[in-house]
Design a protein around this nucleic acid. Structure first.
Lengths: 337, 337
DNA sequence: CCAAATATTGGGACCGTTCCCAAAATAATA
DNA sequence: TATTATTTTGGGAACGGTCCCAATATTTGG
C-alpha cells in the first residue's frame, strides 16, 4: 500500500555501517570520523530521510506534543486563544494537537482518550457546557500527565487554571449601564453548570445591589448557549409588561444574536435598549451598532495557559503547582450602549 | 519525571498471563476463555489502561492521523473549512493535526517536516501567499503520502485539489456591479503568486470587457493581503481625480477593512461607493453595512478535501487519482451594493 | 479410557530509534 | 616495536504493542 519509508538501517546498509553509527551522526551525538559523517549526511539528504518520531517517542516516553481541547471553533474566542497558545508551545519545541468537543460531553471524553492514546505530554482544556463528570480528566492527573484549564475550568481538580475576573467584568459592565441611567437590566446568562456563568451572574447581581436596584428574577434567563434560542428569550423579555432597557449578555455571540432580534423588531439601540456582551469577539467591533463588551486578554490567556502547562511538564509530578491565574478584563465601550 | 504508564505487560504479570493473551483480550481478537477475558478487562479498567498508539502505529505504519496546514486562523474561512474536514475525518476514524503556517514559507516548511516526522497518513494543505518553491510538499508525493490542496493550490503538482470557480465568482460580482450602474470599479487584488488572485482578477477583467468597459490599470491594486495596508490603498483610490464608484475586494477581510476606511472618510456605502468581498466570512453578514460577497461553499470544501484525501489514502500509490473539484460560488447581495 | 480435535495460552519476531557497553581500529607513548 | 590511550564503530537491549506459530490444556468421540 504505502511506499517503504527510509530508515537509518537503509542508510547503514548502503554505506556498510551499523545503525548505531548512522544514529550518532543524525543526532550529532558522539565522535564519528569526518568521512563517515559526511557520507551519512549526504545520503540522508539524498534519500529525504526523515526521522520517525513514533520510534523516538516510544523510547523516550515523550512526544513533545501538547493537546488542546476546546468546546467550539466558531466564535473567534477559542481560535485566538489557540493561536496564542501554539505560539508559546512552538517556541518551546512542542507541537500541538487541537480538537473540538463540539460542546458535547461524549466527544470531549472521546477526545481525551485519543490524546491519552497518542501520549501527549500534557493538555490544555476548556470544558463543554455539559461536562459535569470529570473522570476522563482526572485520569490525566493519575497518570502524571499535566493538565491546565482555561476559561471554563473544573473546580474539583487542583491543577493550574487561567481565568479572567468574570465577576469584576460583569460588575463593571452592569455598573456602567446603571451609571448611564438604565433601570431595568436583563441578563442572558449561561448554563448554571459553568462557573463562568455563575461568576458573571454574581457580578451582575452585585452591581444591582450596590446601586440599590432590586433583583428581578424575571429578567434573568439562564440558557444553554444554543444561539437559536436567543430569539425566543429576547422576544419574551421585550414582551414583558415592564420590559428591560438594557441587556447584559453572557458572551458576544449571544449579544450579537440579541441585537439582530432587537433590530428586526424596529427598536433602536442604544436609545430603546442597550446591549453589552462579553469577550470582545472579532465581529463585535465591525457590526452595527458596534458592540460594547467586556474584553478578555485573549492572547494572554492562551500564552499563560501554554506556559503553565510547559512549566508543569518540566516539573516532577511531586512538585506540581496548582496556581490559578486571574487576568483582568476591560470594558470596551462602543455604540450599543 | 513521569509516572510509569500501565502496559499490557503490567496486566499480564499481575494476572500471571502472557502479554499475547492480554493483547488478544484487549483487541477482542481470538478465543480467550471467559474467565481470563473478564479478569483482564476488569484489571485494565481498574488501572486506567490506555493503549499506546505509538507502539501500534510504529508496527502498522499507519497513524490514522491526517495533517491540515493552513496559512492563518484569524478570518473565519479556514477554521470553518477545518471544522468540516475534521468531521469527515473523525467519521472515517482519523485524527487531525492542524497547524498554521502564519503566511510564511519557512513555517510552512517546518510544519510539513513535523507532519512527516510524526508519520501522518496524509495532509491537506492551503499554501501561504509566499510559497513559490514546492519541494517540501513534493517530498510527500515521493514518499507515497497523499496530499490534497484546497483554496490555494500548487499547480505544479498532480494531486487532488478542491477549489471554487474563482473566475466565475469574480465575473458575477463585477457584472452585478455594472448592471447596477457602476462605471469605475476598482479591484483590490491578492498577490500574483496565488492562482486564486489571478483567477479572480481574470474574472474581474473579463466582466469589464464583456460590458465594454475599458480596463484601467490604475484601479487594480495587487497586494500581499497584509490588512494594515488596505487603508493606504483605499485612500489612494479615493484620492484619484477620477475615483472609483465600486470596489471588488479579493476577500472579505480586505472588503471589511476597506469599509472601515470609507466610513471614516464620511462616504456613504453603497450610495457613494459599493463594495463586494469574497468568501462570506462570519462577520460579513453582521457588520453595517452588511457586506455583499461571493460566498464559497465552505463546509463542502472542507468535507470534499477530507474525503478526497481519505480516498487517496485507501488507494495504492499506483492508482492515485488527481481530480480537481471545482465548486460553485454564489453571489450574496447585501447592503454594501 | 485414550486418541484426536479443539480451545486456550505462551514465545518470540518485528517496527525504528537511542543508548550503553564492548570490540576494533587508530594514534600516542615509552 | 610493543604497549597503552584514544577514536571510531558495532552489537544488542529496550520501548509497547500485534500477530503468527507452536505448545499446552481441555473436550469430545469412538
Amino acid at each position: 500500500m504505502k511506499k517503504h519509508q527510509v530508515t537509518i538501517i537503509d542508510i547503514a546498509r548502503a554505506l556498510n555501517l551499523s545503525k548505531s553509527t548512522v544514529s550518532r551522526v543524525l543526532t550529532g551525538h558522539a565522535n564519528v570520523s569526518l568521512k563517515t559523517r559526511e557520507a551519512v549526511l549526504e545520503l540522508a539528504k539524498k534519500l529525504d530521510y526523515q526521522k520517525n518520531m513514533l520510534a523516538i517517542s516510544l523510547i523516550s516516553k515523550k512526544t513533545n506534543t501538547i493537546g488542546i481541547i476546546v468546546p467550539e471553533f466558531s466564535s473567534s474566542y477559542f481560535p485566538q486563544v489557540i493561536i496564542a497558545a501554539q505560539e508559546v508551545a512552538t517556541q518551546a519545541g512542542y507541537n500541538t494537537v487541537v480538537s473540538q468537543s463540539n460542546e458535547t460531553y461524549e466527544t470531549e471524553v472521546a477526545n481525551t482518550k485519543v490524546m491519552l492514546a497518542n501520549q501527549v505530554d500534557g493538555i490544555i482544556v476548556s470544558i463543554t457546557r455539559e461536562t459535569k463528570n470529570y473522570d476522563h480528566l482526572k485520569i490525566f492527573e493519575r497518570k502524571g500527565i499535566p493538565i491546565v484549564f482555561f476559561n471554563r475550568v473544573c473546580d474539583e481538580m487542583k491543577v493550574p487554571k487561567v481565568i479572567v475576573d468574570d465577576f469584576e467584568g460583569a460588575y463593571n459592565a452592569v455598573d456602567y449601564l446603571i451609571k448611564n441611567g438604565r433601570k431595568r437590566i436583563a441578563h442572558l446568562a449561561g448554563p448554571v453548570s459553568l462557573r463562568i456563568s455563575e461568576r458573571r451572574l454574581d457580578g451582575y447581581k452585585s452591581a444591582l445591589k450596590k446601586n440599590n436596584i432590586e433583583i428581578d428574577e424575571e429578567l434573568i434567563i439562564s440558557y444553554d448557549l444554543g444561539l437559536s434560542k436567543v430569539k425566543i428569550y429576547v422576544n419574551h423579555l421585550l414582551n414583558l409588561e415592564n420590559p428591560p432597557d438594557a441587556i447584559f449578555a453572557v458572551n458576544d455571540p449571544t449579544a450579537i444574536e440579541a441585537i439582530q432580534v432587537i433590530k428586526k423588531r424596529g427598536l433602536k439601540i442604544p436609545e430603546d435598549i442597550a446591549i453589552i456582551g462579553f469577550s470582545n469577539d472579532y465581529a463585535s467591533a465591525l457590526m452595527a451598532p458596534s458592540l460594547t463588551t467586556v474584553a478578555q486578554p485573549i492572547a494572554e490567556i492562551g500564552m499563560t495557559a501554554a506556559q503553565l502547562l510547559i512549566d508543569q511538564i518540566n516539573r516532577d509530578v511531586s512538585d506540581w503547582k496548582a496556581v490559578t491565574k486571574v487576568l483582568k478584563t476591560e470594558l470596551i465601550i462602543r455604540e450599543s450602549t
